[in-house]
């Protein structure tokens, strides 16, 4: 059976969330196995240009719904557009990056369509008997495999930084079609009043490097060396729940079971013991470094590199060593 995969392009004010390109790549590898086309769906206000970008990233063609009511993500309006498009397209899968907006859209759309939803997938395989999805369960302590009962169109979300995106290919061409973007304001009574961007922070979930501090940093000022190291490598700053609960750093930085799940290339845990609930949020990081004064701390069982010692001596030293090796800024 061959049919198309519709990929939602998550964007905010015209800035594409990198997870959208990861989703396009994931869809591309599925159609390579099973046939069909990758169809990008761009929804927003003044976002026509993104259709071409989606094609360059691997979509075969793109559909655009652009209109002023669609400025700012509002789940019910965006879901209405997805439903409208699904009616005229023969998609079997609606693929969405598992960003916060993506998770919400996927849940809403699947319920309105009455179809299947596999969220937060880390593996997609087009097998002889159809698509097989792999998803984490029990906060990463188990992996579940699943399939859909019928041809849907079913909804899939893919976890951030699991599927690698491809570089844009300026030679790639694809047809761009527009769909009616008109939505009645009455269709979504939710109004966005204001938005306050988290200033100057590198996004924890997108960053290739995360430097985290735990109870071992001892206080709010103890995060200074952590920030210093994060800045030196252009990374984001994370924290254990113990540090967040102590009020040393805002909750937005918490990594773990009741915080964020991160999967950077490099995770540096400083003064963090490695409780199972913390590991749940970071243990699939590519390389894990632990700096802890207790040689028996559980974090060392999951780390690739370890330093047993006082973080207040070793973290600044590492910052300096990396600044020396990398020059002024991060090498990228």
């Amino acid at each position: 059976m061959q049919s198309d995969i519709l990929v939602w392009i998550d964007q905010n004010d015209g800035a594409v969330d990198p997870i959208a390109w990861e989703a396009v790549s994931a869809a591309r590898s599925l159609v390579m196995q099973a046939g069909g086309q990758v169809v990008a769906l761009v929804v927003g206000d003044g976002v026509e240009d993104l259709a071409q970008s989606a094609v360059q990233r691997g979509a075969d063609r793109a559909i655009v719904a652009s209109g002023s009511s669609l400025a700012g993500f509002r789940v019910r309006l965006y879901a209405a557009i997805v439903q409208r498009v699904v009616e005229s397209e023969s998609a079997s899968v609606i693929l969405i990056g598992a960003s916060q907006a993506g998770q919400e859209l996927a849940a809403y759309v699947s319920a309105r369509l009455g179809t299947g939803l596999a969220s937060d997938c880390v593996g997609l395989e087009a097998g002889a008997e159809g698509l097989v999805m792999t998803r984490p369960a029990l906060i990463g302590n188990l992996v579940a495999t699943a399939r859909f009962a019928d041809d849907g169109p079913n909804v899939i979300t893919v976890r951030r930084r699991v599927f690698s995106s491809s570089e844009p290919d300026p030679q790639r061409m694809g047809e761009v079609t527009r769909v009616d973007a008109a939505v009645a304001e009455a269709d979504d009574v939710t109004k966005i009043e204001s938005y306050e961007a988290a200033m100057g922070e590198v996004s924890l979930t997108d960053s290739k490097v995360v430097v985290s501090g735990g109870r071992g940093v001892g206080g709010a000022e103890g995060f200074e060396p952590i920030r210093g190291l994060a800045d030196a490598v252009g990374g984001a700053m994370g924290a254990s729940r113990a540090a967040v609960d102590a009020g040393w750093i805002p909750y937005a930085h918490q990594v773990g079971q009741t915080g964020k799940t991160v999967q950077p290339d490099l995770y540096i845990a400083c003064g963090i013991s490695g409780a199972i609930q913390h590991l749940a949020g970071m243990k699939t990081s590519k390389v894990i470094v632990a700096i802890n004064q207790d040689p028996d701390a559980p974090i060392f069982k999951h780390a690739h590199f370890g330093i047993v010692g006082d973080l207040f001596r070793y973290v600044p030293a590492l910052t300096e060593a990396l600044r020396e090796r990398l020059g002024e800024g991060p090498s990228g």
């Binding site: 939803l117 188990l142 992996v143 370890g306 001596r313 030293a317």
Partner: peptide, 30 residues
């Protein structure tokens, strides 16, 4: 249900062979 679970297992433990780095802060950091 439209999502049918076909398997549930413990993920393969990945080999994190720990490389301990010793020495004074400056040396270890380099």
């Amino acid at each position: 249900s439209k999502l049918i679970r076909t398997g549930l297992e413990v993920p393969q433990a990945r080999e994190a062979t720990l490389e301990l780095i010793e020495g004074a802060p400056g040396d270890a950091a380099r």
